[in-house]
Design a protein around this nucleic acid. Structure first.
Lengths: 344, 344
DNA sequence: CGCTCCTCCGTAAGCGTTTACGGAACTATA
DNA sequence: TATAGTTCCGTAAACGCTTACGGAGGAGCG
């Protein structure tokens, strides 16, 4: 006899009463409630998760699926830790646990997720690294599991997502660069089928159009998230017959490589080539001259995700207005010295 | 009627047989086994996790607790993603899931862990960021939950751990620097009570002793994991009456700051100050001149952790020789150009 | 043919909680 | 005093799965 039964025997009352007391339900006198709480704390008792989940039909935990691609994702984890913290801060207040589910490099992301939802390990799912067309969204919608995605996708319809305002970043950047006299502005795009690549490119095209600038596909560079990638594209840009005078980076870390290559060539960031990065992560923030980029609170993004999740959980209805929420996190410009007037 | 009952009805057999078939047990004909498998795949059936855990008394999942300190840990996640991948690669082969448990900044690490083990959410625990004295180790040992720590601790006794060979790194580094003529070698130490700080310092002291060099506490600098920290200590070192000619970094990322400050002062890494970093993470690997540091496979560390865990799980006895395993991961020197002959 | 042994399957009792239901004791009301 | 209404608690049936147990049927043997 273990668990609640032992506790009940110890107190000389029934398991039902103990359970009610622990869960703060009615039909229990304050006196017994107190006794039970005290005994539980003293014996270090906590209700068995499996039994509780089975009886209630709910696990009280939310899964956050991430991917472990060592090539590209390895450095974006920087990103996730901040988000996790934000998610946690909200979930714990509602008695929910956060379980991070790291999909191994060798496994298919769809099947990995499928197993977890089919077995009912979590009550809700948070998805990251959304692809342009992402079957996981369709899966979750069809089985009816509450979910929120960090990043948009063209799959599914009418679901909750939180994403960075890439359009805003592109518009602000291009406006700024154009105002500085730039006419040929290069762009780096993420390798792979992540959705924000398409978003970034579309925003870029429409911004050019808005300014009456010509779109030149040779000014777009697909890169992985690495310093090396930045190093390489400098030469590629220079080799063009009409080299760009500015570049907008989807992976700000590339700035490090660009700086180094420019230095080797005797060129100066902000003078010979204007550079605008996406996010002001610490490493980039430390560069000299400082990189013009954008600031966003990762924690706030996490909070928004958690709130969007709570809005979908029946057990927590009322805490947040129900319904789908789709939110773009604003990125605030942090003007640095890596961009300046265009030189011809 | 859901789950296995529905599946059984569909096939016209009992739930017991279905369960046996799905779990590949005996007492089921190959014919029915085949039919059940087929039906399960067709209907997308997977046994409910809670029910299974309750019946078997085992969750088939391992928890990996990490901490979300945005200040120090945020950038060490780089580190974790690689480790996760290694752990996963082994666990999945044995039908075990990996659940990452991120302890929020606001919560006490001990109570966070306590709740998870008391509720029986996981069969085993992997601990990171072990403190010099870490009550979590005592807790896990007292309740008898299988666990492995990534990093040592002075708490507890005779438990399994995997750690970096900090002693090896220090010895190799000091030997190398001394051979280059350095006599005053500085050291950076981690902020906080993490155990590897103490290990690093102890190894440093004994290495100095071995070479007959004087120990000077003023040559030790406690730093957080940041570029900024490196930037700052340059001035602090120079300000000393007898400035060090070399420095050994616990957080290699500090090299970035050191490089920058040296450049501002018109000094050159490897000539005016020799620098040796711990791990060759991408950002540092990209510096120019290249940083002398050490290489270690994060994935292998993860693999070792998982194997140490399996050795403790009764259900998997035999897969790996039972017993505690304590292993130091070797760090291979990657000689760069950031260190050179001492100048007086 | 009778016996034993093996193969395969159904039955049902758990696993540790939660929770609907009913009932005992007590209070308030007429 | 009889009745209705509260308050508190015990009982037991779920939740979905696993697994010990037993039994039916067939094969193999003497």
């Amino acid at each position: 006899m273990r668990g609640i039964a032992q506790l009940a025997k110890e107190l000389g009352i029934s398991t039902g009463t103990v359970s009610r007391a622990l869960n703060g339900k009615r039909d229990v006198s304050d006196e017994t409630k107190r006794k039970v709480m005290e005994a539980a704390a003293r014996l270090g008792y906590a209700p068995n998760q499996a039994a509780r989940a089975l009886a209630q039909g709910t696990t009280r935990s939310i899964g956050f699926m991430i991917e472990l691609d060592p090539e590209t994702a390895a450095s974006s984890d920087y990103f996730f830790m901040g988000v996790f913290d934000g998610v946690q801060s909200v979930l714990t207040r509602h008695g929910l646990d956060l379980l991070v589910l790291p999909c191994p490099t060798t496994q298919d992301r769809y099947h990995y997720l499928e197993r977890f939802v089919a077995r009912g390990v979590v009550d809700g799912i948070i998805l990251a690294s959304t692809q342009r067309v992402d079957q996981r969204v369709d899966l979750l919608q069809s089985v009816g599991v509450p979910f929120v995605t960090l990043g948009r996708s063209t799959s599914g319809q009418g679901y909750s997502w939180i994403d960075l305002d890439f359009e805003g970043v592109v518009n602000t950047s291009i406006d700024r660069l154009v105002a500085l006299g730039h006419r040929r502005i290069a762009l780096t795009l993420p390798f792979g089928e992540v959705n924000f690549g398409a978003v970034f490119e579309a925003a870029y095209r429409s911004a050019l159009l808005r300014h009456g600038l010509e779109f030149d596909p040779r000014l777009m560079f697909v890169t992985r998230r690495s310093e090396q990638a930045g190093y390489r594209i400098v030469d590629e840009m220079i080799a063009l017959e009409a080299a760009p005078t500015a570049v907008l980076l989807i992976y700000e870390v590339a700035a490090i490589g660009i700086y180094r290559r420019l230095a080797e060539l005797g060129l100066t960031p902000g003078r010979d080539l204007s550079i605008v990065g996406l996010r002001d992560e610490p490493t980039v923030r430390f560069l000299e001259p400082s990189v013009t980029c954008f600031s966003v609170s990762l924690r706030d993004i996490g909070v928004a995700i958690a709130e969007a999740m709570l809005a979908q959980l029946p057990a927590h209805a009322g805490a947040y207005p129900p319904g789908i929420v789709q939110k773009l996190a604003h990125l605030e410009l942090r003007a640095g010295e890596s961009d300046g007037p265009a030189r011809s």
